[in-house]
Design a protein around this nucleic acid. Sequence first.
DNA 1: CCGTTTCTCAACACCGTGTTGACTCGTTCG
DNA 2: CGAACGAGTCAACACGGTGTTGAGAAACGG
Lengths: 221, 221
Amino acid sequence: MPSDPSLGVRGRRPARTSGDDRELAILATAERLLAERPLSAVSVDDLARGAGISRPTFYFYFASKDAVLLSLLDRVVAEADAAMTQAEAVTSGASGRPPEVAREAWRRAISAYHDTFRDHRGLTLAWAEARSTNHEVRELWAGVFEGWVQRSAAAIEAERARGAAPPGVPARDLAVALNSMNERVLYATFSGDGPAVAESDVVGVLLGIWLSAIYGSAPAG
Amino acid sequence: MPSDPSLGVRGRRPARTSGDDRELAILATAERLLAERPLSAVSVDDLARGAGISRPTFYFYFASKDAVLLSLLDRVVAEADAAMTQAEAVTSGASGRPPEVAREAWRRAISAYHDTFRDHRGLTLAWAEARSTNHEVRELWAGVFEGWVQRSAAAIEAERARGAAPPGVPARDLAVALNSMNERVLYATFSGDGPAVAESDVVGVLLGIWLSAIYGSAPAG
DNA sequence: CCGTTTCTCAACACCGTGTTGACTCGTTCG
DNA sequence: CGAACGAGTCAACACGGTGTTGAGAAACGG
């Protein structure tokens, strides 16, 4: 069995200039162009020319402009997930001093989210734009978001079980609202237009609200 | 001076079928169509035919599809502002018992916001869609949002000055984050896709977070 | 060297937007 | 009355973007 190590995932052999290279060139062009202008101002033709091919050839590699975006999003989401998992791991083995350790764990998680999307600002903005018109983008994001909601909800419930946090509204509802807040606030911060929190303060502000919503008690009414 | 009472704001006289009627027909058609499908699935032709005119004639009344949206948005925003002002007025004359009265004031404000946009669900969704591509929509919303942020921030500062709320992060930052949360959470609730809080619980969940962020104290760290 | 697979693109079909220029039809004023 | 005006109307056009077709070249693999 003479298996060729240069065979790609799709079993394609390198031609004059490899097809996989072209695919990567399209992705790279997309990320480059989206860093400087909105998705609606980037046409399929722009992506094709940026990758040194014609528009029909673009369709050999991707079904549409949105498919390119989806592909890029997959990567960034994986990155964010990894960063968040790592943030969790760092503070997981400690059940000693509740306040400082717990606070640090939440801070790291929010920071991981913030850093990842800040590093792909253009993509983040493009994703928000595509979400309103593209079903697949919407579903991908819904899945990712649901994952984060479940993590946060589980963490909140764990704190309540330990007696570190008081009972209150369902943990899941709290998690949905807080994660939604992060999403919108960070988006506003990165997009630059409209009222927003300064980038240097945003993690601190969000953290404060998470902590008081989870640990602080609202006045009885 | 024979002033004709049928003269409109723009001093136009009614022709065969009045131009103002057509303008209203376009607006009504837009709101009707947006209640059943997204903005991207409503063309200028749809609006024109819905109002009983041809596409070029549409452009006699509005510069674009977005201009129609902007016009509708103006109305809804005025409605929301009025509802919120009224909510404020109801509880303004009371400086007696802090906790219950304050809680009720915040609840009414959030509820007003919620009710207004729920009553124009299709429009709310269309606005979010247009915001990503249209500069004017973005600016209109930024202005409205800024107004709400200033109100909330002022109210938070008032509570802090009274000693009812502890100091913390700048009131404006808190206001931006909490208003952003409301926007995103309510949007998710109305849009129906992706993780969301049940509509019957959403005001309560948001209120809880506002109260603990403003009045509750986070653990020192 | 011949067939198959990979890859490429000119030309086309389609749709949505916004514009032009001519035309109707009441109103106004000499 | 009838010319002039302005509001209102639309067929036809120009344009730009998307996605498809069909006819190839270029590189293996047998």
